[in-house]
């Protein structure tokens, strides 16, 4: 998590970028990988991700003067632009959205509650993974977006609210609902803010 001071420093860089585009390079190098991964998780296509990612940073550079400090890191603004670019792409193609999730991350996220499992059964299995995927298909897109930002991008609720242009309480509600459904359907406990 960035401190208030770090956020202000990044904001100062962005302000400078409005006059001198070269200054933006620092932020570009710092956040390129994260934004690329974020977009890739919603496209599963490297070339398309590269296009959308460069469009994201181009838009950010173009609008560097317009960014208003709201207590969230500059990266949240990049995520917001990236999210809008991805949504725009899917709207244009009229296709269903793709969520490509790393199995490793899902394993890290979900810890099987051994109490709820029959003895001798392994915690993580391919079968469970497939079931989970089938189940996640039925979740609304806005819930999946919140889950992605919360667990795969490690964003707090304030940032999630800013990225998705919703209220903080709305972001919390969506997350809790999605997690409750997961718990009920799979008898699993989920790493969540240190609590299970």
């Amino acid at each position: 998590m960035l401190s208030e001071d770090d956020i202000r420093k990044e904001y100062a860089i962005l302000e400078r970028s409005g006059k001198n585009a070269q200054a933006f390079g620092e932020l570009y190098e710092r956040y390129f990988d994260r934004i690329f991964n974020f977009i890739y998780r919603q496209t599963d296509d490297e070339d398309l991700t590269a296009d959308l990612c460069s469009q994201t940073f181009l838009n950010a550079l173009k609008n560097a003067n317009r960014f208003e400090f709201r207590g969230v890191p500059v990266s949240a603004w990049f995520y917001r632009i990236a999210s809008n670019e991805v949504n725009k792409h899917y709207r244009k193609l009229k296709k269903e959205k793709v969520f490509s999730i790393e199995e490793v991350l899902v394993k890290e996220l979900i810890e099987i509650s051994n109490d709820n499992l029959p003895t001798g059964q392994a915690g993580w299995s391919e079968e469970l993974a497939l079931k989970l995927v089938e189940y996640m298909k039925e979740l609304p897109t806005d819930m999946l977006e919140v889950l992605q930002l919360r667990f795969f991008e490690d964003k707090d609720f304030k940032e999630i609210a800013y990225i998705l242009s919703i209220s903080e309480s709305g972001a919390k509600m969506r997350t809790y609902r999605a997690l409750d459904r997961l718990r009920k359907n799979f008898n699993i406990s989920i790493k969540y803010d240190g609590k299970k």
Partner: peptide, 20 residues
């Protein structure tokens, strides 16, 4: 409603660097 794909591996940072 959405297409969910489970990937075995994470994206390699070197691969990403090609696009940076």
């Amino acid at each position: 409603r959405n297409e969910i794909r489970l990937r075995k591996q994470r994206l390699n940072p070197r691969r990403i660097a090609r696009y940076r």
